[in-house]
């Protein structure tokens, strides 16, 4: 399996309220609320850290869950968020601005096609 990198989408608003990330997309005005785990993945989505490492560091270490199961769930989760424009998913590192937005420096990076599953 190839390495997956994730960065925060550019056309969205977000605020962490009581430890949970609330996100509004500009494209379709859909409001989403990430749970604690989802918020941890969002916080770590710097475009440079592989998803596998994020899962090991933020999910397995803190929540004591099986690595294989956690990674599979995380892959589905990030692809689902990518389909809504909340995350950018790529098989190459994603250059971001100081504020976490994609700068376009790596426009050769191909986004992984989002799967059609419903967000958990």
């Amino acid at each position: 399996m190839s390495v997956i990198y994730i960065a925060r989408g550019t056309k969205l608003a977000g605020r962490k309220l009581k430890g949970q990330m609330v996100i509004m997309t500009a494209r379709d005005s859909v409001l989403s609320c990430l749970n604690e785990l989802g918020t941890a993945i969002w916080d770590a989505a710097d475009g440079l850290t592989p998803l596998e490492e994020i899962v090991e560091r933020k999910v397995c270490a803190e929540y004591h869950v099986d690595r294989t199961v956690a990674l599979k769930d995380a892959e589905e989760f990030v692809q689902d968020l990518a389909s809504d424009g909340i995350l950018i998913v790529s098989d190459q590192p994603i250059a971001t601005s100081a504020h976490g937005n994609k700068t376009g420096l790596n426009q050769s990076a191909q986004s992984i096609e989002a799967r059609p599953e419903e967000r958990p």
Binding site: L17, K18, V22, S29, V30, L31, S32, C33
Partner: peptide, 20 residues
């Protein structure tokens, strides 16, 4: 959860916590 019900929940949560 739909955006409108999530928005309602968000508003209530902010009201309960005294958040702007």
């Amino acid at each position: 959860m739909s955006t409108s019900s999530l928005m309602q929940e968000l508003g209530q949560s902010a009201l309960d916590a005294g958040l702007p």
